[in-house]
């Protein structure tokens, strides 16, 4: 099965106890780009990201990553795939029983044969990258929402992933903090050249980091293209969505 796109969702269907969420999702993502998926809450954005990570399995359809089909893979092989992908969860999902440093070190401590000193160095470099140096001994409960997102990004980057998934990275943050998080997303893509998928219902945030954008509704992609193309869309839902609240 030849697949030229770096990441490709092919005709994905997914329901939860008879409630359809994804209904024929098709989506292609190029290597190195930042694609923003815009859509209302509950339209299936998080589910889409979790399917790419192999955390959820589609009812039908196939997902390809770098030419390899990941649907139907064994959990063991999926673990290898997940090492290429870092995910920033919506609520940050830091382990609240571990310190900030232990959170960032988690994947390395679990799976690499690096020494404690090497891991410490990676942890402090990653914390520095997200402008959180000196916080390694704090507990997640001592951090603000924006700081949690930064630590979660540092944790997701521990394995130097090729792909970063951001689930609502600015939702619930004040506008100034949101701006700094968006700046961090751009810095990450600039310095590491990662492929990024950002999922959000916030237009301004989305457009400020996107190379391309897609609009999702009812478990399908309605429109995908450059920001200009999206803004010129004639699709009725897309126009309503972009117009924002009246």
């Amino acid at each position: 099965m030849e697949q030229d796109n770096y990441i490709f969702f092919q005709d994905i269907y997914k329901s939860f106890s008879d409630k359809p969420v994804l209904q024929g999702l098709n989506l292609a993502i190029e290597r190195g780009e930042t694609l923003v998926i815009l859509g209302r809450s509950g339209c299936g954005k998080s589910v889409t990201l979790k399917i790419l990570l192999g955390l959820l399995y589609p009812d039908s359809g196939r997902v390809f990553l770098d030419g390899e089909e990941i649907t139907g893979m064994s959990e063991k092989k999926l673990v290898e795939v997940r090492k290429k992908i870092g995910m920033l969860f919506q609520g940050s999902a830091l382990f609240d029983s571990l310190t900030v440093g232990e959170n960032v070190a988690f994947a390395l401590a679990e799976h690499s044969d690096k020494t404690a000193a090497e891991i410490d160095e990676i942890v402090s470099n990653n914390l520095k990258f997200v402008e959180m140096e000196g916080t390694a001994n704090l507990m997640p409960s001592e951090l603000s929402g924006g700081m949690k997102k930064r630590v979660a990004l540092a944790r997701a980057m521990a394995y130097q992933p090729d792909i970063l998934l951001y689930d609502e990275p600015t939702t619930g943050l004040d506008p100034i903090t949101a701006t700094t998080i968006n700046a961090l997303i751009r810095k990450t893509q600039r310095e590491y050249g990662v492929t990024s998928i950002v999922v959000t219902h916030e237009l301004d945030s989305g457009f400020s980091v996107a190379d391309r954008a897609a609009v999702m509704e009812n478990g399908r992609i309605l429109e995908i293209g450059t920001i200009d193309a999206i803004k010129k869309s004639t699709h009725e839902f897309v126009r309503t969505f972009l117009a924002g609240p009246k």
Binding site: K50, L53, L55, E75, V79, R82, K83, I85, G86, M87, F89, Q90, G91, A93, L94, F95, D96, F106, A107, E110, H111, R155, Y159
Partner: peptide, 16 residues
Amino acid sequence: MAVTEQIDAMRALGTN
């Protein structure tokens, strides 16, 4: 841990 996606995060980080 499940409702705050910490279990998903653990799987995403390659741990069972």
